[in-house]
Amino acid sequence: MNQVNQLHEAKKSASQKGVQSKRGKNLLIIAIMGVIAIGGYNLKGYLLAKEGGWAYPPAKVALFDAQYYQLPNLFEGVGELEAINEVWIASEVSGRVESINFESGEVVQKGQLLVQLNDQREKSERARLVAERHYIETQVKRYERLVKEKAVDVSKYDEAYSQLMQIDASLANIDAAIAEKAIRAPFSGTIGIKQVHLGDIINPGQKLTTLVDGSEFRANFTLDEKYAEFLTVDQPAELYISALNRSYPAKVSAIDPLISNARLISVQATVIARNSAEKDIAEIYPELKSGMFVKAFVEGEAIDALLIPETALTYTIYGSSVLVMQKNEDGSEQVKAVRVEIGEKQRGFVEITKGINAGEKVVISGQHKLGDGAFVEVVESDTLSFEVPQFAISNMATQ
């Protein structure tokens, strides 16, 4: 009985699989027929369009007139910001910290005592040398008098005087050692966070804190060697600091005469005020901090450039192209794909060096759904429409 039931179930399962397989084949045939129908419909529309009959509605696009502009010739480089004076405060000698005379973040003056190391041994040695000098100085005066009276040989005076000079040299040496134990501010500025504590034993060269004079800021950056011949001192520059999303005016203050092995030239530009107010840069731009990453633009002589928005370009492995609008005799508008060569890119615009002429209208939106020869409808306004670039000055009329 069980064998009969199993046989019955097997036949039933096979029957269901056959039905499912047949249903799947039917669905596949329907899908293929749908694709063929759509293709035939599109082909019919294409043929009717060629015969002057029915066609798909033209795509709506926005255009831009290619024109010549005075384009600032900007040399771009990257670097970092630095203050006119900035230093790690460190000790020249080893010793134990006896006193710390500053608070983190406060303004200090040039020569102000910052950290005092234990100098008792040096002071004791100095006291001994002072006493010894006093004795030898007395001897020198005595021998000087006796030499005049010819009571002693002049060599006695010379020997005592030599000892006096040696004592003076030893005193100068011990004074220098005592000065090294008193760590002072080399210039006025803002002190950083202290990295030392009372009682610490420090070693020569150990960093104790930072000191920054932010009265003036400079940017150090590099440019390609091809720009070397166009660089001059006092040349206008612009420093863009990405962390602040803001640009600052500057001027070139120094140019390194040596080209690096990486074929780069080092340039330094000084931040300047936008007005003539006689204030420190730190007061005018308090947000600037030493070490900030900057993108520098040095302004060279302006060039005449044929500009279009970068959105008009279509990039392929074969090169760049744009769609140029053309009007037919019947008033219809079509686009033509044109291969172009590009030059400088600035703030959303690109220079066209070959391929189109001034006055031609290029498609700046909607080109992703167009092909060569497609019919279009021009719209007056579009979310991607562009105005004349603010950084360029119109230089030439339509040619």
Rank of each mutant, 00 (worst) to 15 (best):
A277M: 09
G214C: 08
W88P: 02
T209P: 11
G348N: 06
A374M: 01
Q16V: 07
Y318D: 15
N5A: 06
V252C: 04
I202Y: 07
V350D: 04
K336S: 15
L28I: 10
K110Y: 02
G366N: 06
E137D: 14
L211S: 14
R347D: 05
R184W: 01
S266F: 01
K148V: 04
L48W: 13
V363S: 06
F386D: 05
Q390P: 01
F391I: 09
S260L: 01
E80G: 11
H368I: 03
K17F: 02
L231T: 13
G189I: 08
I32P: 05
Q166W: 01
S15P: 05
Q139N: 10
S94F: 01
E387A: 02
K251R: 03
S15F: 07
V35F: 09
P58N: 04
Q235R: 06
A83I: 09
I191V: 12
T316A: 04
V388G: 03
L28V: 11
E132M: 05
H134Y: 08
I352N: 10
S13R: 14
I29K: 10
V362M: 06
Q206E: 15
L323A: 13
A296K: 15
E92T: 14
R263I: 01
E238L: 03
E106R: 09
K25Y: 05
E387W: 03
G95H: 06
R274P: 02
K148G: 11
G343R: 14
E299G: 05
G34L: 10
D280S: 07
E377C: 00
A273P: 04
D224F: 05
M292C: 10
Y69H: 03
E238Y: 00
V154R: 15
Q195I: 01
L288D: 15
Q120K: 07
G343V: 00
F217G: 14
I393V: 12
A14Y: 06
Y46C: 05
K194C: 02
E98G: 01
A14T: 09
E51F: 03
I317D: 14
I32R: 04
A282S: 15
S124T: 14
K295Y: 07
I352Q: 08
T138L: 07
A131L: 08
I393P: 05
G319Y: 10
D200G: 02
I136V: 15
S266D: 01
A176K: 13
K251D: 00
W54T: 11
E299W: 02
Q268E: 08
A151Q: 11
A185L: 04
S276I: 04
E287V: 11
R339K: 15
Y46N: 15
